[in-house]
């Protein structure tokens, strides 16, 4: 009896699953709350515990959030949208493995942006808004970013050290 019922359940599940629109995968739906909670927990840890404990490992993401009032998560989405990965290897961005420009892992530890501007949130934002204006012979084009977009991307890149 038990076998029959569990078989029935499996069949019903398989049929319902195959009829479902693809965006609503069961596994995806079930995993989402856990993923959310995990993200919040790790954010909380980074901001409240790690930063408080060790001066040596400043939390760039929290810092950039504070300095810039920026949203690094949106920055990550913009990096995907603008296809920066065509030229840069960027931590945490799938398919961003370009070799045309510098690798942006540990970018936050660098002193200069493209060797011409001090690596601070404001200057990085300025670089992203118009690279050729700061370095006339550069290969990196002006991608037409808006001020708030550049700021969010800058926040993500400066947080890349903690994201490894």
């Amino acid at each position: 009896m038990f076998v029959a019922i569990s078989l029935l359940l499996v069949i019903a599940f398989a049929m319902a699953w195959s009829a479902m629109p693809p965006q609503h995968s069961v596994a995806g739906a079930a995993a989402e709350p856990f993923r959310q909670a995990g993200r919040q927990l790790s954010d909380w840890y980074r901001i409240h515990i790690r930063q408080g404990l060790a001066e040596k490992t400043p939390d760039y993401e929290a810092a950039s959030r504070r300095f810039l009032d920026a949203d690094p998560q949106r920055g990550a989405e913009l990096i995907v949208q603008y296809g920066c990965g065509a030229c840069h290897d960027i931590p945490g961005i799938r398919a961003a493995q370009g070799t045309v420009g510098p690798d942006l892992h540990d970018f936050a530890q660098q002193s200069y942006v493209a060797g011409v501007l001090p690596n601070r949130p404001g200057d990085l934002t300025r670089w992203l808004l118009n690279p050729p204006a700061h370095s006339p012979a550069t290969a990196m084009p002006d991608l037409g970013l808006k001020q708030d977009e550049a700021r969010d991307i800058a926040a993500y890149l400066l947080g890349s050290e903690v994201r490894r």
Binding site: Y82, C87, G98
Partner: peptide
Amino acid sequence: RMNQGTLAGWIADPSA
């Protein structure tokens, strides 16, 4: 996605 940045990246290094 098609834009100037990806185009430039493509021309400089298609096989990457």
